[in-house]
Design a protein around this nucleic acid. Structure first.
Length: 280
DNA sequence: TCCCAGGGATGAC
DNA sequence: GTCATCCATGGG
């Protein structure tokens, strides 16, 4: 069998770190292979040194796009590395990249992540896919807005997602009905995207920033959660209102704030997810 | 038992 | 406008 692969020598990545640092959900590990239906297409990939090996049927351009292999990591590291704290975070997390998640999936995922843990969020995303999503080549896929819109809030509660259930049910119906289109926000400015997102019941500033960064390609976004707050306090000695922390990040990191955020997050959280978070 | 987890809505001032 | 409180759930 002729094997398809992506050359990583000019665009390095640490696949496992990138998929398990807590930004991407829905990936499953089968031996050395990572599997997910990403934006409708089944992807099955494994890293071997400077090669990303693709199982037959996996589209290399689709994978490269999801993994943001088009980002210039060296340029980013040169810019952020001038900051002493980021310099350490960069050294601790080589090959970490942001991903380009599907906007609808990302929106629901980060609603679910609210006031929860990455482990439980993983479980909830997986449960949604298995219960409501159609399968793609045998692999569970995150449910479409229409598929999720068929579920009542009461039904969703059975997935142990608590008070988030009615928000999920409502936003699914709104998107399914065409009243709101998350993917269209990719064409909006960062400010406009945030404004539209926080107008939705159940989405606040932090969730909106996560969607903006991990799905809408707004690399200037700097989501502030409990870990980032801790990182800014410990390593920069600053604390206060989130507005002030965002202003600090915007000034200090500028257009690379999103990468600064994911490196700080991965660093302070102490490396990859526990093994228990990875579904075999 | 209390505290925390990739928060957000609500109501009191 | 800011702040306290509540909201489900589960792990430490």
């Amino acid at each position: 069998m002729n094997e398809a692969w992506i050359d990583l020598r000019r665009r390095p990545i640490d696949l496992e770190r990138t998929l398990t640092c807590g930004q991407a959900f829905g990936w499953r590990r089968s031996g050395p292979t990572w599997i997910k239906v990403a934006a409708g297409k089944r992807c099955a990939i494994q890293q071997s040194g400077t090669r990303l090996i693709l199982e037959p049927g996996t589209d290399p351009r689709h994978v490269a796009r999801y993994l943001r292999l088009d980002d210039d990591l060296d340029a980013m590291a040169r810019a952020l590395g001038r900051d002493a704290v980021l310099s350490r975070a960069l050294a601790e997390c080589p090959g970490l990249r942001l991903v380009r998640e599907d906007p609808w999936e990302c929106l629901v995922t980060y609603m679910l992540a609210q006031n929860s843990t990455i482990l439980r969020t993983q479980a909830a995303v997986r449960a949604l896919a298995e219960r409501y999503g159609a399968r793609v080549e045998g692999e569970p896929r995150f449910p479409s807005p229409a598929e999720l819109a068929r579920a009542s809030a009461r039904e969703l509660r059975r997935l142990r997602i608590g008070y988030r259930a009615p928000w999920i049910a409502r936003v699914a119906r709104a998107v399914a009905a065409g009243a709101f289109d998350p993917a269209a926000l990719r064409r909006a400015t960062y400010r406009d995207a945030i404004e539209r997102l926080i107008s939705i019941d159940g989405i606040g500033r932090k969730t909106a920033d996560c969607i903006a960064l991990y799905a809408l390609e707004k690399l200037e976004a700097f989501p502030i959660d409990t870990w980032i707050r801790k990182a800014l306090c410990v390593h920069y000695g600053i604390e206060g209102r989130d507005d002030d922390l965002r202003a600090f990040a915007a000034t200090r990191f500028g257009p690379h704030a999103g990468y600064a955020q994911i490196y700080l997050f991965a660093w302070v959280r102490g490396g990859p997810l526990a093994d228990g978070a990875v579904f075999e």
